[in-house]
């Protein structure tokens, strides 16, 4: 969420204002203890529990048809949600960073709204809006369009919870880059689309990719909102996190953790890409201007 700091630190000379070694040792140990309890133990547990009954059971839990259909639905959802929110993010960032207009501050805070809403409420609003209880929902139902307790509902709820990721990544980046380059191109006779694809897009590509990765991670992992709208129909409207929950509540712990390893793996990949990208963003920034 925040820009990385490690590279900036490294450019600075070694710190002269260091604490006494004893203090350092104690604080580092405390930090390690916190990480051990809150980060490493859960990570280790997922693999230990998932593999507890052996590799065969583990593979069985992942290859089972319900698990596969959950993976498929999750991927379909992410494949729809990420591009839609990415296009929106770029558009919103363009409008906000390249122009000045009244109410900009309000617009920017409205973009962040979904982060302040509980995931359960995010699901609830779409049940209220599009469920068969309302006029609009029943009209859709009469025309054979089922949204709630079906894939479209999952997609819309996920769109809501991942809404701000790309925009919030791009707005500060594009504001920092200013509009001189684009304005120069326009003055030299470039068309709007050329300016965007030749100048803006290359300038923001790392930020855009980073935002899309965060968006994807959340859309794969979203639980609360999806849980409300999905109806938990096995093999039909189960995403991976919901599948994990069902297995767990059936006391099928091994399978539940086995499926969780997929999500943990994806989370670790996300983190790895994120730290690599932050390096890239920092390495490229000086050359951009």
């Amino acid at each position: 969420m925040q820009t990385n700091t490690t590279l900036q630190e490294q450019r600075k000379a070694p710190l002269k204002r260091n604490d006494p070694p004893a203090v350092q040792a104690i604080l580092i140990l405390l930090t390690l203890l916190f990480f051990a309890i809150f980060i490493f133990m859960p990570l280790g547990l997922v693999f230990a529990e998932g593999l507890r009954k052996g590799v065969a059971v583990y593979l069985e839990a992942i290859r089972e048809p319900f698990a596969l259909s959950a993976v498929k639905l999750t991927l379909i959802t992410a494949a729809i949600v990420v591009p839609l929110n990415a296009v929106f993010g770029v558009t919103a960032a363009w409008a906000i960073s390249k122009f000045s207009f009244k109410g900009k501050t309000l617009l920017v805070s409205l973009l962040d709204l979904p982060f302040a809403v509980s995931p359960v409420i995010a699901g609830l609003i779409f049940v209220l809006l599009l469920g068969t209880r309302t006029g609009f929902g029943s009209w859709l139902g009469d025309h054979g369009i089922k949204i709630i307790f079906s894939t479209p509902g999952i997609v819309i709820a996920t769109l809501f919870v991942t809404f701000p990721f790309v925009a919030r990544e791009l707005i500060p980046l594009m504001e920092a880059q200013g509009r001189e380059e684009e304005e120069a191109a326009i003055t030299l006779g470039a068309r709007g689309w050329q300016v965007f694809s030749r100048i803006t897009l290359p300038n923001i590509r790392w930020g855009l990719m980073y935002g899309m990765i965060l968006c994807m991670a959340r859309s794969i992992g979203e639980f609360g909102a999806v849980s409300v709208v999905s109806g938990h129909i096995r093999g039909m409207t189960n995403t991976i996190p919901l599948h994990v929950e069902i297995l767990y509540s059936e006391y099928n712990y091994t399978a539940s953790f086995a499926v969780s390893t997929i999500l943990v793996f994806l989370a670790l990949v996300t983190i790895a890409i994120k730290s690599l990208m932050e390096k890239n963003v920092h390495n490229h920034q000086p050359t951009q201007h």
Partner: peptide, 26 residues
Amino acid sequence: RRVLDALVDLPFALPTAVAGICFATL
């Protein structure tokens, strides 16, 4: 240190349901 720094983001990246069943089991 680098690894810890990167892993600070784990709670952002790890699906909440997985975190939930982990703590319940731990």
